[in-house]
Amino acid sequence: MNKLFLGCFAVFFSFQVSANLLVNPTRVELDNLKNRSAVFSLVNKSSANSRYNIYFEDKQMLDSGEFVTLDKDDVDFSISNYIRYSPRRINIQPEQAVKVRIAARLPKSIEKGEYRSYIVFHQIPLAPEKKDSAADESDVFSLSISAYLKISVPVILRVGDLDSELNLSNSVLDAGSNALQVTLKRAGNRSTYGDIEVINADTNDIVGASKNVTIYTELSERTFSVPITESVSHNARLIVRYTENDKLHNSKSVEVKLAL
């Protein structure tokens, strides 16, 4: 009887946080002054050894919040050519940690603006183990499925004093999903990220929130669905507030009032 072997199918996942690999930080922000380097800590939480290739990719955000990977020739804002990093391949034992260091090397001619690429930690298979010869000679149906993690972390470089202008519009309550559709608009030469809160103006209670929303410089606006987690009356007065993360230069807060 002939033996039938099925090869190993690789299934790729793009998770910012994985149960098997913990990556810290999950966002890096550099500038052309003092913050020119960063250190990643990678912890293997699985029970097996793991190996990762490390490299940079360029991605573009869509207005849906999804990303597409770009060719280098199509990118104006990439920092991958300005970054040195080490190591480029790592092996991590179970419950052990490894450090990955990156540093910006900027030419004097670099133009003012915001640059962004993604450092990728891409799991690759270890060397296959030798199989028992007796098992090799038996008639076996073999199916091996391996899930290889691919974790991408944004690395942002800001050159010069960058700023953004923000406003909120088109806040509409979707009764069917019990969520508030909020459009955040961005202008200027830097991206924005922060938190959207929906506040009951009568009680000052937070009735809904979306954390760590982001609009990168390739987009001028995004619409977010903010879940309403507390009951509000049909004639409630709401305040929709967006607050930028205080790590951003000249961080801002904008709000709009809404009557249901």
Rank of each mutant, 00 (worst) to 15 (best):
R88E: 10
D63L: 02
D202W: 04
N24M: 09
E66S: 11
A38P: 03
N91H: 11
I199M: 00
L248M: 08
K252H: 06
E66G: 07
K34E: 13
V159F: 00
N245K: 05
D161A: 11
V68Q: 13
V198S: 03
L166C: 02
A97C: 11
R101P: 03
V172C: 07
D63C: 04
V75K: 01
N44K: 08
E255L: 11
E221C: 10
D71V: 06
P154V: 09
R241Q: 06
Y118C: 06
I79W: 01
L184D: 04
S47C: 09
K34L: 12
S86M: 12
R36M: 12
I102A: 04
Y118G: 03
F77C: 06
V39D: 03
Y85I: 04
G7R: 09
F5H: 15
R237H: 12
G176L: 09
L258K: 07
K108M: 09
A236C: 07
L248Y: 00
Q93M: 14
K59Y: 13
V182G: 02
R88F: 07
Q93F: 05
A187M: 09
Y118A: 02
F5A: 15
T243E: 06
S225A: 06
D76Q: 12
N167I: 05
G113Q: 02
D74G: 05
V153N: 06
L260T: 03
R158A: 09
N245E: 07
E255T: 03
V232S: 05
F40N: 03
L180D: 01
E165P: 05
L149A: 12
K112N: 12
S233H: 01
Y118K: 01
R51W: 03
A10L: 15
E66C: 02
G176A: 08
E29P: 03
S169D: 10
M61Q: 15
L33Y: 08
D174H: 03
D58P: 12
S231E: 13
I145V: 15
P94Y: 04
E244P: 04
V232M: 08
L33F: 08
T214I: 14
S78W: 04
E230Y: 01
S164C: 13
A134C: 11
V159P: 07
S47Q: 13
E95C: 06
R27V: 13
A175V: 10
T243S: 15
S117I: 10
I239D: 01
V17D: 09
S144Y: 05
S133L: 11
D139C: 15
R190M: 14
E111M: 10
T183Y: 04
K150W: 00
R222L: 05
S233T: 14
I110H: 00
S47V: 12
S233I: 06
K108T: 12
P128V: 06
V23W: 02
N178P: 05
K211W: 03
T69D: 08
A19S: 14
K131P: 10
I145L: 15
I102F: 05
V11D: 12
N212D: 09
R158Y: 02
S138Q: 09
G188E: 01
N170A: 14
D205Q: 14
P125Y: 01
I83P: 10
Y52D: 04
L62H: 11
I145F: 10
N204F: 10
L166N: 08
R237P: 00
Y55H: 11
N24F: 08
A127Y: 04
N32R: 01
A10I: 13
S220I: 03
G113C: 07
